[in-house]
Amino acid sequence: MSRHSSARVLSNDEVQTIDEMTKSGATPHQIMSYLRRRNPCIKAVATNIYNTKANILKASLGGRSNIQVLLEELGNGGFLFDVLKDEEDHLTHVCFAHPNSVQLSRSYSNVFVMDCTYKTNRYNMPLLEIIRIRSFNTSFYFCFIFLKSERLDDYL
Score class of each variant (00 low, 15 high):
M114T: 08
L128V: 01
A26Q: 10
T52A: 14
K53L: 03
T138L: 15
Y141Q: 15
F112S: 07
G75L: 03
A97M: 15
R151N: 09
D82S: 14
R64Y: 03
V69H: 02
E20M: 12
L152R: 00
Y108W: 13
G78P: 13
Y108R: 02
A54C: 05
K119M: 09
E72C: 04
A26K: 09
I49R: 02
K119C: 04
D19M: 11
Q68G: 04
N100F: 15
I18D: 01
K58P: 07
E88P: 01
F79G: 02
F96M: 10
L84R: 08
S5M: 06
G62F: 02
G63V: 09
C143G: 13
V83Q: 05
A59T: 00
I49A: 02
T22I: 06
P40V: 12
S107K: 13
Q16C: 00
L84P: 02
L80T: 10
Y118V: 12
Y50F: 15
L35F: 05
G77F: 01
N110H: 09
R64A: 12
T52M: 01
R8C: 12
E14M: 12
D13E: 06
R8I: 11
I145Y: 00
D115C: 06
E88M: 02
I31G: 00
P40T: 10
H98M: 11
H4K: 13
S139H: 09
A97E: 06
F81D: 10
Q16P: 03
I56M: 00
F96T: 06
T52E: 05
K148P: 04
H4E: 11
N121W: 08
L91A: 04
V102M: 15
K58H: 09
T47Q: 15
K23P: 04
N39P: 03
S149R: 01
S149Y: 01
R132A: 14
C41Q: 13
G62D: 03
N76H: 08
E87D: 14
V69C: 13
A54D: 12
E87N: 07
D86F: 08
R36P: 09
Y123W: 15
F142P: 03
I18F: 06
L84I: 11
M114K: 01
M125Q: 10
T138E: 14
N55Y: 07
R38D: 05
A97V: 09
